[in-house]
């Protein structure tokens, strides 16, 4: 065990690669999720089609194959990325597709009455989205975003297959050099778990902040909708 722990500089470097991939991939995924999720709520069929194409393509592909594609295939047609960048791209595009569905679903889940109140105050479509719908939808997005972030963090393990020395690769290396199979992989398990817990705490913190903004102590739940639209 001590031999395994003696190689802590490797563990630290590996964990740092994993964390960087998670944060950069998460940032890219968030931007893509918002952009394509909003596109999915557009009045224009052509804009909604953009959302469908993006979501279906990147959700329907193995992240590892995407990664191979960016890493091995693109250079052959003259596009060469840094390994880390290719990995961030593959992970962000994949998780962003799931995130876009979360964004679209959350916006659609804001009660219609809120949209109508915003029309009654003569907000422009942009203002309705920016001032009323998105802030409320954000509360609904956070829990699934937390799940996706952890999925992303675990998914970074695939980069060890294209030569990046992340946590998974370090555990293999340490196992190889020390022969301490149980200890090496146990340390990796614990480190992944710790990183996931930290991410989870951050998301919880954000959820509490948003709940306070919305004036509720409980997790997000849709408010009562108005009575029948055609009624009266």
């Amino acid at each position: 065990m001590s031999e395994v722990l003696d190689s802590y500089p490797q563990w630290v470097d590996g964990a740092w690669v994993t964390i960087r991939l998670t944060l950069l991939g998460g940032a890219l995924a968030l931007v893509l999720a918002l952009a394509f999720g909003l596109a999915g709520t557009s009045r224009h069929a052509a804009v909604r089609a953009l959302n469908r194409v993006y979501v279906e393509f990147f959700r329907g592909n193995a992240t590892l194959v995407l990664l191979y594609w960016f890493f091995y295939a693109l250079p052959l047609i003259g596009l060469r990325f840094a390994t880390l960048f290719a990995a961030v791209l593959a992970l962000g595009l994949n998780i962003g597709a799931y995130g876009a569905e979360v964004v679209r679903g959350s916006i659609n889940a804001v009660p219609k009455a809120q949209h109508e109140a915003a029309i009654a105050l003569n907000f422009t479509p942009f203002q309705r989205m920016r001032r009323v719908l998105l802030p409320q939808a954000f509360a609904l997005m956070l829990p699934p975003f937390g799940n996706l972030l952890i999925e992303l963090m675990k998914g970074t393990a695939i980069v060890s297959l294209v030569g990046l020395v992340d946590l998974t690769r370090v555990s293999k290396n340490v196992q190889g050099s020390t022969g301490e199979t149980v200890a090496a992989f146990t340390v990796a398990l614990v480190l992944y778990f710790v990183i996931a817990q930290v991410l989870q705490l951050l998301v919880r913190y954000a959820e509490r902040r948003v709940d306070r903004m919305l004036g509720r102590g409980l997790p997000a739940r849709p408010a009562l909708d108005t009575a029948g639209v055609a009624g009266g």
Partner: peptide, 14 residues
């Protein structure tokens, strides 16, 4: 020119 008050108030919770 027009304002409306709704049955369910529809205040903005955010």
């Amino acid at each position: 020119q027009v304002g409306m008050v709704f049955q369910q108030f529809n205040l903005f919770p955010n």
